[in-house]
C-alpha cells in the first residue's frame, strides 16, 4: 500500500487484518482477516454482534493495538509508525473510556484541548454538544449520557478529517441519540470520513453510506444498505390454509410452515404477492393474517447472527461502488 496522503486514496484501508489475544491453547483470534475500505467523505457503519471483532478491529485502525497480521492505512499512513501525523487528523471515541472525576467539564475540555492541534475554543465545544450549562460541574457528577457528550466533544474538538466512533450512542436517551446523529451527519457535510460501530441497526440505516457486517472476526456482508438487503428474500406470511389446500406454483424462493403460519420467501415480492392474491381470489380462499415484509438490514443481520444466512465473505456492492468517495 502507498504511504503518502494522496487525496484519491481511501481514508481507511485494511488488508488481511488479524488480531489475536494470548498464545497457545488459551489464545483467541478476534479478527480473522478483515479487508475494509472506507472512502473519503463517507460514513461507514461496522455492524456485528457482541464478540464479532468490531472493537478489536477499531483498536487496530486507531493505532491503539498492533495487528497480528495484515496492514492498515489511515489517510495513506501507518497509524502506529506515523502516529503523530495520523493522530493530528483523527478523532477517536472509544466504546468505554473515562475522565478524571475531580475535573469540571470545562477543565476536562481545556486539558484535552491542550493536547490537540487546532482545538476549537472550549466555549464553542461546550455549545456544540449542549454542555454550556454543565461547564462547571465535575465529571463525576454527570450522567452517563452527559459524560458521553463530553467524550464526543473531545473527539471532535480538533475538527478531524477522520472520525472513529465506537458505539457512540450506547447508553444515550433517544433525544441524545438523535443529537449525535445530527452531529455525525454534520461531519459528512463538512467532508469528514466517519467509521462508526453500532448495535443499533436503525442508526446504521439512518447514517451510513456503506455497511460492513462482521461475524466471527470477519466481514461477511459489505455494501450499501440497499445492496445488502437486496441479497435477502422478502417474505409473505398468512395463517395456514386447510390441510388439504394446495398452494399454487409460486415463483418463490421457499415455502415453509412455522407454527400456525405459512411463510413464503421470495426475491420478487410484488410478483409473488400478485400470484398469491390472484390464486386466492380465483379459488375463493381467504388468507387470514396476511402480511408482506420486504427484507431489512435487521433481518439480514439476525440471519447472519443466528447462522441461517451464509456467513462467508460476501461483497454486495457488485463492484458498483468506486472507492474514490468525495475527496476533500
Amino acid at each position: 500500500m502507498n504511504t503518502t496522503t494522496d487525496s484519491n486514496q481511501p481514508a481507511i484501508e485494511a488488508r488481511g487484518l488479524r488480531r489475536s489475544y494470548g498464545t497457545g491453547a488459551a489464545g483467541f483470534e478476534a479478527v480473522r482477516g478483515v479487508d475494509l475500505i472506507v472512502p473519503r467523505g463517507t460514513i461507514t457503519a461496522l455492524l456485528g454482534t457482541n464478540g464479532a471483532g468490531k472493537t478489536s478491529t477499531m483498536e487496530v485502525i486507531e493505532g491503539l493495538a498492533p495487528a497480528t497480521a495484515g496492514e492498515v492505512r489511515m489517510l495513506g499512513m501507518d497509524p502506529i509508525k506515523q502516529r503523530a501525523d495520523v493522530r493530528r487528523r483523527t478523532g477517536v471515541l472509544l466504546q468505554a473510556s473515562g475522565f478524571p472525576g475531580d475535573l469540571t467539564v470545562r477543565e476536562t475540555l481545556e486539558m484535552w484541548g491542550a493536547t490537540v492541534s487546532a482545538a476549537r475554543p472550549v466555549d464553542e465545544a461546550l455549545e456544540v454538544l449542549d454542555l454550556t450549562h454543565r461547564a462547571e460541574v465535575k465529571m463525576r457528577s454527570l450522567s452517563g449520557g452527559e459524560t458521553r457528550r463530553v467524550d464526543l466533544a473531545c473527539t471532535l474538538t480538533g475538527d478531524p478529517d477522520v472520525v472513529l466512533l465506537d458505539e457512540p450512542t450506547t447508553g444515550l436517551d433517544p433525544e441524545s441519540r438523535r443529537e449525535v446523529w445530527r452531529l455525525v451527519e454534520g461531519l459528512r457535510e463538512r467532508g469528514a470520513t466517519v467509521l462508526i460501530t453500532t448495535h443499533y441497526l436503525d442508526e446504521a440505516e439512518a447514517l451510513a453510506d456503506r455497511v460492513e457486517i462482521m461475524h466471527g472476526g470477519r466481514i461477511v456482508r459489505s455494501g450499501t444498505t440497499a445492496e445488502i438487503v437486496s441479497d435477502h428474500p422478502s417474505s409473505i406470511r398468512f395463517a395456514h390454509l386447510a390441510a388439504d389446500s394446495v398452494l399454487p406454483d409460486l415463483s418463490a424462493t421457499s415455502i415453509s410452515r412455522t407454527g400456525a403460519h405459512t411463510v413464503v420467501e421470495t426475491d420478487d415480492l410484488q410478483a409473488t404477492l400478485h400470484e398469491l392474491l390472484g390464486w386466492a381470489h380465483q379459488h375463493c380462499v381467504r388468507l387470514d393474517d396476511l402480511s408482506a415484509d420486504t427484507a431489512s438490514l435487521e433481518k439480514v443481520f439476525l440471519a447472519i447472527a443466528d447462522g441461517s444466512a451464509d456467513a462467508t465473505t460476501h461483497d454486495s456492492t457488485h463492484q458498483s461502488t468506486q472507492l474514490e468517495g468525495n475527496n476533500r
Binding site: 486507531e62 491503539l64 502516529r83 503523530a84 493522530r87 493530528r88 477517536v92 472509544l94 468505554a96 473510556s97 473515562g98 475522565f99 478524571p100 472525576g101 484535552w112 493536547t115 490537540v116 492541534s117 467524550d151 473531545c154
Partner: peptide, 19 residues
C-alpha cells in the same frame, strides 16, 4: 486512571506516552 480507562482515552489523542 488505568482502571478507569482515563489513560486509554488520553492515548487516543496526540499526546505521546512519554508526555
Amino acid at each position: 486512571r488505568r482502571d478507569e480507562l482515563v489513560l486509554k482515552r488520553l492515548r487516543t489523542g496526540e499526546a505521546r506516552d512519554s508526555e
